[in-house]
Simulated assay, not measured.
Amino acid sequence: MYNDFVMWLIAVWGFIMIGLLAIGGFFMFRKFLKALPREDGWSELDWQEYYIEQALPLWNAEARKLLDELVSPVPQIFRGVAKQKIAGRISKIALDEKVSTIHLDQIIKGYIIATPKRDHGFMKKKLKELNIDYSPYEHLFELADDEKQKFSIFEQTEALKKVE
C-alpha cells in the first residue's frame, strides 16, 4: 500500500517536472529566437537596446513614470521584458519623429504598437484608468505586435508613416 502511494507520488512529481521544464524551455526558446541576428546582422534585442540608448536623453522623469505605470498590470516576472520592449519602440518613434523630449504622443504610439494584440483589452482598460484618450490612435491597433505574424516591432516605421 505504502509502495503504491510512493510510486504514484513519484509519477505525479515526474509529470509536473516535465511540464515545468517544457514551459521554461518554451520561453527560453522564444528569447533565443529574438537574440538571433537578422539580415542586417543585428537581433531584435540589439535594435531594442540601440534605440533606447540613442533616445536616453529624450526620456524625462514624467515619461519614465508613465511607462512604469503603463506596464504595472504585467506580472512582475515579465514586467522588465515588457518595459524594455515598449521603451525600445517608444524610443524608435521619438527618434523617427525627431522630438526633443518624449511626450504622451510617442508613449501611446509605442505602447500600442509594442503590446501584443492579445493584451489590447488590458491595455485599453489601463489607459481608461489613467484617463488617457486613445481614440486618436485607433488606427495603430492594426500595427500592433502580432505573435502569429512574427515580425519585428521595429519594422512598422513605414506603415506608421503611411497611416499618419
Rank of each mutant, 00 (worst) to 15 (best):
residue 4 D to R: 09
residue 112 I to E: 01
residue 9 L to A: 15
residue 104 L to K: 14
residue 13 W to E: 07
residue 88 G to D: 01
residue 154 F to D: 10
residue 89 R to M: 03
residue 29 F to Y: 10
residue 53 E to W: 01
residue 67 L to I: 12
residue 40 D to G: 11
residue 92 K to C: 04
residue 66 L to E: 02
residue 111 Y to K: 00
residue 69 E to P: 04
residue 158 E to F: 09
residue 65 K to D: 11
residue 133 D to A: 13
residue 87 A to T: 07
residue 118 R to M: 08
residue 42 W to I: 13
residue 105 D to H: 07
residue 163 V to Y: 07
residue 124 K to E: 09
residue 160 L to W: 06
residue 108 I to S: 01
residue 157 T to Q: 14
residue 78 F to W: 10
residue 163 V to F: 05
residue 100 S to I: 04
residue 82 A to W: 02
residue 22 A to K: 05
residue 163 V to E: 07
residue 153 I to F: 08
residue 21 L to F: 09
residue 95 L to M: 15
residue 31 K to A: 15
residue 99 V to T: 11
residue 51 Y to D: 01
residue 132 I to H: 12
residue 102 I to A: 04
residue 57 P to S: 14
residue 104 L to R: 14
residue 57 P to R: 14
residue 67 L to M: 14
residue 22 A to M: 08
residue 117 K to C: 03
residue 25 G to D: 12
residue 24 G to H: 12
residue 74 V to K: 02
residue 35 A to T: 10
residue 97 E to L: 11
residue 132 I to C: 13
residue 127 L to W: 05
residue 82 A to I: 06
residue 127 L to H: 06
residue 98 K to P: 01
residue 43 S to E: 10
residue 36 L to E: 09
residue 73 P to C: 15
residue 125 K to H: 08
residue 156 Q to W: 04
residue 118 R to P: 01
residue 153 I to K: 04
residue 139 H to G: 02
residue 57 P to F: 06
residue 115 T to K: 00
residue 120 H to N: 09
residue 26 F to W: 13
residue 71 V to E: 01
residue 108 I to W: 02
residue 47 W to D: 04
residue 136 P to E: 10
residue 5 F to K: 10
residue 59 W to K: 02
residue 113 I to G: 00
residue 92 K to M: 09
residue 119 D to K: 02
residue 79 R to A: 12
residue 49 E to H: 07
residue 80 G to H: 02
residue 79 R to D: 05
residue 151 F to L: 11
residue 59 W to F: 02
residue 80 G to S: 04
